[in-house]
C-alpha cells in the first residue's frame, strides 16, 4: 500500500539532513509502528508523507497504491487516502467543527469524482461516529479544536479519520498528552477502523500505546534511518532496555 524507497529529506531553510534513506513498506490491513529516540526523524517522516512545507526531498520516493505522493499537494494526497493524525492538532477559531468536517469530506469526494454527501446523510454519519468516540454534540458545534482538552483534540482527530475513511492512516504520537482512559478511547477508535483495505503507521515513543493498538510490525528509527525491524516483541525490548542497546547493536 505505502511504499517508501530510499527517502532522503533535508530542511528547506537549513543545510540539515533529517531522513537519510528510509525504506518502508506498509501492506494493506497491517499496522506498522515506528519507535525511536527524539530527533530520529519520525515526525518529519509523517510530515513529508502528508505534504507539509519546509522539507526538501533530495532522493528517493514514496507512493500510495502505486501513485507517487511526493509531487502532490497535501489536499491531493488526502483525496488519495493519506491521513495524518497530528501530534498537536491545530486550533481554528471561527470555523465550526461540523462545517470543517463537511467541507473536508465533500472536498475529498469531489476530488475523487464522487457525489457530495447530503447534509442529512452527513449529519447522521457524523453523529454515529461521534457517539462511538464519546464526542458530544456541543463539541461538534464548537470551533475546530478551540478550547478542547488534550484528550478531546485527539478524539477529534480520530473522528476526522473515521469520517474521511483514509487508506493510509499515519498517527504521530497520538498518545502524547493522554491519560490511560483517553488513550484507551483513542485506541478503540483506531482499532474500529482496522480493516483489510487500510494500512496504519503508528509513530510513538512508548510501548503503552501499542498495548492497545497491536502492531504487526515494529520499526526502530534512529538518525534518519530505520535501523531495526521486528515483531511486537521489539517494542517490549525498547520498553525494558531503552534504545541504547538496540542502537549500539546496529552501530
Amino acid at each position: 500500500m505505502l511504499e517508501i524507497k530510499n527517502l532522503h529529506v533535508k530542511l528547506e531553510e537549513e543545510d540539515k539532513q533529517i531522513l537519510k534513506g528510509v525504506n518502508l513498506t506498509v501492506e494493506a490491513g497491517k499496522v506498522h509502528a515506528i519507535m525511536g529516540p527524539n530527533g530520529s526523524g519520525k515526525s518529519t517522516l509523517s510530515y513529508v508523507l502528508s505534504g507539509k512545507d519546509g522539507y526538501e526531498v533530495t532522493e528517493g520516493s514514496a507512493s500510495l497504491l502505486g501513485e507517487e505522493l511526493l509531487e502532490l499537494e497535501p489536499e491531493e494526497r488526502a483525496a488519495l487516502g493519506v491521513f495524518l493524525a497530528f501530534q498537536y492538532p491545530v486550533e481554528i477559531p471561527g470555523v465550526g467543527n461540523m462545517t470543517f468536517l463537511r467541507t473536508a469530506v465533500n472536498a475529498q469526494r469531489k476530488a475523487r469524482g464522487e457525489e457530495e454527501l447530503s447534509a442529512t446523510d452527513f449529519l447522521k454519519h457524523v453523529r454515529e461516529k461521534a457517539k462511538e468516540l464519546k464526542i458530544d454534540a456541543e463539541m461538534l458545534k464548537r470551533p475546530v479544536n478551540v478550547g478542547f482538552s488534550g484528550g478531546e483534540k485527539k478524539r477529534n482527530e480520530i473522528l476526522q479519520m473515521a469520517m474521511l475513511e483514509p487508506k493510509m492512516c499515519i498517527l504521530d504520537e497520538t498518545d502524547s498528552g493522554l491519560d490511560v482512559d483517553a488513550m484507551k478511547l483513542v485506541a478503540d477508535g483506531v482499532n474500529a477502523l482496522r480493516d483489510e483495505g487500510r494500512g496504519f503507521l503508528v509513530i510513538t515513543h512508548y510501548q503503552r500505546l501499542l498495548d492497545h493498538i497491536k502492531p504487526d510490525v515494529v520499526h526502530i528509527m534512529a538518525d534518519g534511518r530505520i535501523v531495526k525491524t521486528g515483531g511486537p516483541e521489539l517494542a517490549l525490548e525498547v520498553e525494558n532496555n531503552g534504545y541504547a542497546d538496540i542502537l549500539s547493536e546496529v552501530a
Binding site: S50, R77, A78, T103, A107, A111
Partner: peptide
C-alpha cells in the same frame, strides 16, 4: 492551520478563506 485544513483534503484556496 492552513496545512491542517489541506491535510484533510480542503483545497488551498478554500483553506485560505477559512
Amino acid at each position: 492551520g492552513l496545512f491542517y485544513l489541506r491535510s484533510r483534503g480542503v483545497p488551498e484556496s478554500e483553506a485560505t478563506d477559512l
